[in-house]
């Protein structure tokens, strides 16, 4: 499926107190099944807005959006979202937070024991076997973000949407989670869209990097295809000429062609 997610001439404007605010215009993007695409751009350009559109949390004011040839008319578990601030329910344990999602998707066809097994398995996959019954308030930011990822993965979504999933983490934890995410994506062949502002993260993880122009009325500036073999290895890539080339292409776009809105 070459056009698993289809975004055609999509625009998004918000009604604000000061009148209409055009956040996005003329977004055209097709995402292959199993592809890893990241959205990069300066803060406030509309990355989250675009991700929320794919999630169906908001509906576009122009254009059409399809997922698996069906119009995206609202949110649904086949397009799981990892939210920027993890959004775990603080009154449920890690297990219960994930179970809520598992139950919603699989309870119709599977017995309870199987649902619990699924929940435990996915939490083990993100390395949280020891924290199943802890509350979000009792674990660190990195662990919370992993529960958020586990919750999304547990739904076996067609598309995995992530909004700066590692943005709030320290560099070491972030690197570790990136490696884990790469393994998980290789294993599950999930179609993934990730918002990021980290150039290395984008190059390391992506098949394509969608670079967005500055807002208002932001759109896609360039799309960079990252042709590096998988599985990718952080250490060996650090000195890879191709890797460096991709990296500088993104930096070039961000800082030369689209200098930061505050600096302009």
């Amino acid at each position: 499926m070459d056009k698993f997610v289809q975004i055609e001439k999509v625009g998004m404007s918000f009604d604000t107190k000061k009148g209409k605010f055009v956040a996005l215009r003329d977004i055209d993007l097709n995402i292959r099944q199993g592809e890893f695409v990241s959205l990069i751009g300066h803060s406030g350009c509309g990355k989250s807005t675009l991700l929320n559109l794919i999630a169906g949390l908001t509906l576009p004011t122009a254009g059409a959006m399809l997922c698996a040839n069906r119009e995206i008319a609202g949110p649904g578990p086949e397009r799981a979202v990892v939210f920027q601030n993890h959004s775990l329910l603080p009154w449920l344990t890690c297990f219960e937070n994930v179970y809520l999602a598992v139950e919603r998707v699989f309870a119709a066809n599977e017995p309870k024991a199987r649902l619990k097994e699924r929940t435990t398995k996915v939490l083990e996959m993100v390395g949280l076997a020891h924290a199943l019954h802890k509350y979000p308030g009792e674990i660190s930011g990195g662990m919370k973000q992993r529960v958020g990822i586990a919750r999304a993965l547990a739904m076996e979504p067609k598309v995995l949407l992530m909004d700066e999933p590692f943005g709030a983490l320290d560099a070491l934890t972030r690197a570790r989670l990136q490696d884990e995410l790469m393994k998980i994506c290789d294993a599950t062949q999930a179609t993934t869209v990730m918002v990021t502002h980290d150039v290395d993260e984008a190059v390391l993880l992506s098949d394509r990097i969608v670079m967005m122009t500055n807002g208002p009325a932001a759109t896609i500036g360039e799309i960079l295809t990252v042709d590096l073999p998988r599985p990718r290895e952080r250490l060996s890539l650090a000195h890879d000429a191709k890797y460096m080339e991709y990296r500088s292409a993104v930096i070039e776009f961000l800082y030369a062609k689209q200098s930061h809105p505050l600096a302009a």
């Binding site: 949390l57 949110p75 578990p77 939210f83 959004s87 329910l89 809520l100």
Partner: peptide, 8 residues
């Protein structure tokens, strides 16, 4: 939003 994505 979580509720909407999970379609609870």
């Amino acid at each position: 939003n979580v509720a909407r994505v999970l379609n609870l």
